[in-house]
Design a protein around this nucleic acid. Structure first.
Lengths: 213, 213
DNA sequence: TTAAAAAAAGGGAAAAACACCCTGTTTTAA
DNA sequence: TTAAAACAGGGTGTTTTTCCCTTTTTTTAA
């Protein structure tokens, strides 16, 4: 009966164990093992002869986050089905996760029956999208993808903006002229419909470009 | 055997159910019911003849958060033991929660055995503190409590600082002269050892005075 | 009830941020 | 291979922020 193996990846051990306990309460599923972060999962899977059927993956994790982990995992082992499980309901994050190869995305505030249903669907159909996620996907794919693309250098700049440094000091740190920094700032103001540096800080934090720990 | 009742309060239903499943796997404990937020808990408890023994309370919740809920709950029903369960490891939050009347504080990244131990201790001793929390309490009580106290108006100001408004606009919104706002800012710079407005924004976000949703 | 403390308001000036103009060079893509 | 886009930088002026001060008003406590 219990023939479908699940691996739970979550940096909060108690939560991982709790979810594992829940999974074990489902008829057809059992938890193979738990991992505290993405790196641990990749290391562990690499050593295995028999791969897990499903990985229940948290998105926000230290060391190697859910998105990166999913990217690498699905590339190396396309047969493993990743179901993202997160508190994060930002469109951008969901899209990123699905692009990375996740076969479904569940918010942590769904009912456990939904989780069971999701796992079953994943086995039967190979994917599972809730209505919300489907709608999101539709909008995203129908040209409406106004995902603002930031360049590497802009992201680097944004990180420094979220500090008490002046633009002059940021320029020094990036080995650029203060004038160039002026340019970066103005471009971002335009791109993000923002008026001042406070706006940049709020944007960077909201979109997790920097992490205030 | 299963004679100690536990109520789980967490806004993420799946997590509440998962933790509940875990609790039910412990010998002496059973989950009485789940709540999605503090208000729901208070309403429910008010209707009951037999109170739960233990409440496993998340700290960050919508509608009525863990701290406020604990305050009210322990005031009305001192016999109920609240065990805080959170991802939050900020000293300030922990102190607040314990001051509110929680009998223990567990991080969500502990082992499930610790949870079981905590629950047992709670029943036997009436409280359960991990080593970390004990140390924190010590430092906090031994005069070393340099918890920076912000005034209501300062908090109101800080919230507005975390927006794209200029100080002049903030002054208007608070019905004060821009010069008074200058004063507020300078006082906070001094208090928080900060150099500029960006510092204020970072502080406010880090200490959850504003919530970037 | 009076002295002290805190809150509110203000003047002035330097520094930083912002806005808008511009010129080249280097990459990228049609 | 050529046009467009991205990148780096310059000049100038305005606004906002920051940091000195001082003064008035309100609150608090002795």
């Amino acid at each position: 009966m219990k023939n479908i193996s699940v691996v739970v990846v979550d940096d909060h051990i108690l939560l991982a164990q709790a979810i594992s306990s829940l999974v074990n309460s489902f008829d057809q599923f059992f938890t193979k093992y738990l991992c505290c972060n993405g790196q641990e999962l990749l290391d562990r899977v690499a050593l295995e002869k028999i791969l897990p059927d499903i990985v229940l993956m948290d998105v926000n994790m230290p060391i190697l986050n859910g998105i990166e982990t999913t990217k690498q995992l699905t590339k190396l082992y396309p047969s493993i089905k990743v179901l993202a499980l997160s508190v994060e309901d930002e469109d951008e994050t969901i899209i990123k996760m699905l692009k990375a190869g996740a076969k479904g995305y569940l918010l942590k505030d769904v009912q456990k029956t939904i989780l069971e249903k999701g796992l079953l669907e994943l086995v039967n159909s190979g994917f599972y999208y809730t209505k919300d996620v489907s709608n999101l996907l539709m909008n995203s794919l129908s040209g409406n993808s106004n995902t603002i693309q930031l360049k590497d250098r802009e992201i680097e700049f944004l990180k420094l903006v979220c500090s008490e440094m002046t633009y002059k000091q940021i320029a020094e740190k990036m080995f650029l002229s203060p004038k160039t920094i002026d340019g970066y700032r103005d471009v971002l103001f335009e791109k993000l419909h923002i008026k001042n540096r406070i706006g940049l800080v709020l944007y960077a934090i909201k979109h997790k470009i920097v992490n205030i720990s």
